[in-house]
Amino acid sequence: MAHPAHEETIQLVKEIFRTYLKERNQRQTPERFMVLEEIYRSEGHFDADDIFFNMKQTGTRVSRATVYNTLDLLIECGLVQRQQFGKNQYYYERSYAYQQHDHMICKECGVVIEFCDPRILEIQKMMEKIYDFNIEAHSLHLFGTCNNTEECNRRKETGDKIKSLTPQE
């Protein structure tokens, strides 16, 4: 069973999405809300096909086009962020009620390490002040290579998708 706070977030994002669709005279279809739920029940980064196949495996009837179109709407209303980690493929992650974070990406194996450093927010505030500028969002991607070449090579060989790691892993 999902954590009650997690369920509260899902209900809240559904209401935000409902309001967003209504204000733009967009249809409020059950499939769109199922895509939203699937995203907010998922962890980390995912691509559109991950969402599509996860929903198909659970017996949810949804088209690939609906998944892509819903992702675009969710990005527009600020509930999902789109990331591109140096390749042609986009990855997505939920953005409501989740801590702002940045990414380090290995150019060899594609692993993504999420990190949060409060100094980045301080730099952002300082830049706003210096340049009299209102920053609404930021995205920081640091590209490099893993120091653990054995693990990096294993990920390349197995074709592991981009995933998030914490510093302890």
Rank of each mutant, 00 (worst) to 15 (best):
A2E: 10
P4E: 02
H6G: 10
E8G: 12
I10W: 02
V13C: 01
V13Q: 02
V13S: 06
K14C: 08
E15H: 11
E15M: 13
E15P: 02
R18T: 03
Y20N: 02
N25K: 13
N25D: 04
R27W: 05
R27G: 05
Q28N: 03
Q28W: 04
Q28C: 12
P30F: 01
P30V: 00
P30H: 05
R32A: 08
L36M: 05
E43T: 12
G44F: 08
G44C: 02
H45P: 06
A48P: 06
D49W: 11
I51V: 14
I51K: 09
F53I: 12
F53G: 02
N54D: 13
T58H: 11
G59S: 08
G59P: 03
V62S: 07
R64S: 14
L73I: 00
L74R: 09
C77E: 00
G78C: 01
G78R: 00
L79Y: 05
L79P: 01
V80E: 01
R82I: 01
Q83I: 02
Q83Y: 12
F85R: 10
F85G: 05
K87P: 09
Q89D: 06
Y92N: 00
E93T: 11
E93L: 09
A97R: 14
Y98D: 06
Q100K: 14
I105T: 01
C106H: 07
V112H: 02
V112K: 00
I113D: 05
E114V: 06
E114Y: 02
C116Y: 15
P118T: 00
R119M: 06
Q124E: 15
K129Y: 14
I130K: 15
Y131P: 00
D132Y: 02
F133I: 07
N134K: 15
A137F: 07
A137S: 14
H138G: 01
H141E: 08
T145P: 05
C146P: 07
N147G: 15
C152S: 13
R155E: 00
K156R: 15
D160A: 13
K161H: 11
L165H: 08
T166I: 03
T166R: 15
